[in-house]
Computed example of a mutant assay.
Amino acid sequence: MRLSDFDFQLPAELIAQHPMAARTGSRLLHVRADSLADLAFRELAGLLAPGDLLVMNDTRVLRARLLGEKEGTGGAVEALVERITGERSAVAQLRASKTARPGVVLRFGSARATVTGRHDEFFLLEFDEPVLEAMEREGRLPLPPYIGHAAGADDDERYQTVFAREPGAVAAPTAGLHFDDALLAQLRTAGVETAFVTLHVGAGTFQPVRVEDLREHRMHSERYVLPEETALAVRATRARGGRVVAVGTTSLRTLEAAAAGDVHLRATTGETNLFITPGYRFKVVDRLLTNFHLPRSTLLMLVSAFAGVQRIRHAYAHAIAQRYRFFSYGDAMLLERCADALAE
């Protein structure tokens, strides 16, 4: 398939700029094989059964946007930390009037970092103190580029999931933003189990696909951890006939990358650049809970692979007509896996 197969027109006013007052106040579109159902997210428990397993991404978004200047010249510079590579080292995207060369010192408030090299579009930075401490003190939450306001106190809370605990992402696993503690407790009472993976979402998630032939596209690698208890929970769910429900595309990619051809999932830690397009055969995930994604994006390709190309086109057209809210702070979909997504 080609990039243009995943394009659609979205009215700008449907791009959610702020979260709903309550996390569970968003809408939920249930996309089934032969029908669509308009629901509220708080009704999710009624769509799950005792013995089902929700797999969630517990990554925590870093305060990864740093504003500062070049030492000596005073030239403005903005850094978006892509990844922490050591206690005092990181890889970042830099925006400045002139390219920062190795040896240039950058100041971000009271934090100080030296450019030590470059790899593709990323710059290697060495901080004078632990990176996490510098970012927590001087950084800002990196809201997606389609959100038109700077991160405020409300975003500091609402652009993190209530189960975020492993710092390392530069973008939130947004399907998880709809859950609050009360809903999680309701699901546990109903017999729905939960398990966690960690995938640190990188800045590459916002990079556009620049080739028409999707076979030529290369994904950025992202770090993931699938703990032993989660692998055991998935195998136990399979054994009792329950369904594995991925909360978000990041959880799905972690599970599918870790399976690596083996449906008997095992604990693993690694990097993945798994690019899922129609024709991919899913090994682990039965259902996917996800937000609505950008036109021409790898995430739209993933959900089309999971639920069927025509079914997703129909669901998105319905969502636009019904004025659903799109992207990170928007509404959600619950997708059933299509047996033959390419044929769809």
Rank of each mutant, 00 (worst) to 15 (best):
E71H: 05
R32C: 05
F108W: 07
Q93R: 15
F108G: 10
E138P: 03
A33M: 04
G74A: 10
P145K: 11
A76H: 09
A49Y: 11
A100M: 14
R118N: 08
D52V: 03
V77R: 00
A113C: 11
G72V: 08
L53P: 02
Q93G: 07
L124V: 04
T161M: 05
D38Y: 00
H149F: 02
A113M: 02
F122K: 12
Q93S: 14
F163Q: 00
P145Y: 05
E136S: 13
V81K: 08
A49E: 15
A150Y: 03
L53T: 04
A153M: 07
R101K: 15
L67M: 10
I84A: 05
L53C: 05
D154K: 11
L124F: 12
N57Q: 10
T73N: 10
G148M: 12
L94V: 12
G75Q: 10
P144M: 08
E129S: 15
T114L: 13
A153P: 09
A153G: 01
P102W: 00
A92C: 10
G117S: 07
A96K: 06
A37P: 03
A100I: 07
D154P: 05
G103I: 09
T85W: 09
A79I: 09
R60K: 15
A111T: 07
L48M: 13
E82R: 09
P142R: 04
V104S: 13
A100P: 14
A113H: 13
K98V: 12
P144D: 07
L53D: 01
E78F: 04
F41V: 02
L124C: 11
E82F: 08
V104M: 10
G72H: 08
A76S: 12
G139E: 00
E136I: 03
E82T: 13
A79E: 02
E126Y: 10
P130Q: 10
D156Y: 14
N57M: 07
F123N: 07
E87Q: 15
V115A: 12
R112P: 01
A92D: 06
D58M: 00
L143C: 12
E78D: 06
V104H: 08
I147Q: 09
V115L: 14
R137M: 13
K98A: 14
L53H: 02
G117W: 05
R158L: 04
V77T: 04
L80E: 10
G46E: 01
G86T: 06
F108L: 04
D156I: 10
L94H: 00
E82M: 15
P50K: 13
L141I: 11
V104Y: 06
I84H: 00
F41H: 01
E87R: 15
S110Y: 10
D128F: 05
P144E: 09
P142Q: 07
G86W: 10
T116Y: 09
L124G: 11
K70G: 02
E138I: 04
